[in-house]
């Protein structure tokens, strides 16, 4: 009856996920996971996640084999729009359920610091997904490259840049196709440059 309090009823992957935060090794180099989320829209209550792409950065190097990508099966056909159709024509075979996707995502990121572009919405949507699974919120530290750029240039907080604009500013070649993994990769390139400029450790 008090399962929700003790966490006994939680699935194993969630426990494992939480454990990563208990045994943090201060000496190990920080692992950053740069992520990008493709979703049906901008409303965190009604829209859903379509796919998540991740790429890892350790020691100022993007590690191509530290890669993760997942596509989510859309149960509710009415949610689908044009973008969804396009996305799934190519990758529908690999699509999994939302809860399966979140499980895999958490297994992949462990306790890494998450990096993204306009992360608030993405994190909120993932928290919603976790809530539907009766689980808590994402515990990882999250950094937004938009905020990093504001800090680098001393810009006011309400001045936002799209990912494309940041790519132009940092001379990063834009990807031809907006998929979660492609966007995660170019976000990672922008992050490496910003990290150096801000002299982050």
């Amino acid at each position: 009856m008090l399962d929700w309090l003790t966490g006994k009823g939680d699935p194993t992957f969630w426990k494992t996920y939480l454990e990563h935060f208990d045994k943090e090794d201060a000496n190990a180099p920080t692992r950053y996971v740069i992520f990008d989320v493709e979703r049906t829209g901008l409303n965190w209550k009604e829209d859903v996640i379509l796919s998540i792409g991740c790429i890892g950065v350790v020691n100022d190097q993007i590690e191509i084999n530290d890669f993760f990508e997942v596509f989510i099966k859309q149960e509710n056909r009415t949610q689908q729009n044009e973008a969804v159709e396009k996305l799934f024509k190519a990758d529908s075979s690999e699509a999994v359920s939302e809860s399966e996707a979140m499980m895999r995502f958490l297994e992949h990121i462990k306790n890494a610091t998450l990096i993204g572009h306009n992360t608030n919405l993405d994190i909120e949507m993932m928290n919603q997904a976790l809530k539907r699974m009766n689980l808590g919120k994402i515990k990882n530290n999250v950094l937004d490259i938009n905020v990093m750029y504001q800090r680098f240039k001393n810009l006011p907080e309400d001045q936002h840049h799209t990912l494309d604009e940041l790519c132009d500013l940092f001379k990063v070649k834009k990807s031809h196709r907006h998929t979660a993994s492609n966007d995660a990769y170019i976000t990672a390139l922008v992050f490496l440059k910003l990290k150096r400029k801000l002299k982050m450790q």
């Binding site: 100022d60 190097q61 993007i62 191509i64 084999n65 440059k193």
Partner: peptide, 11 residues
């Protein structure tokens, strides 16, 4: 090969 590559940025 590419899967094992690391990408580095140099100022």
């Amino acid at each position: 090969i590419s899967e094992q590559i690391k990408v580095i940025y140099l100022e």
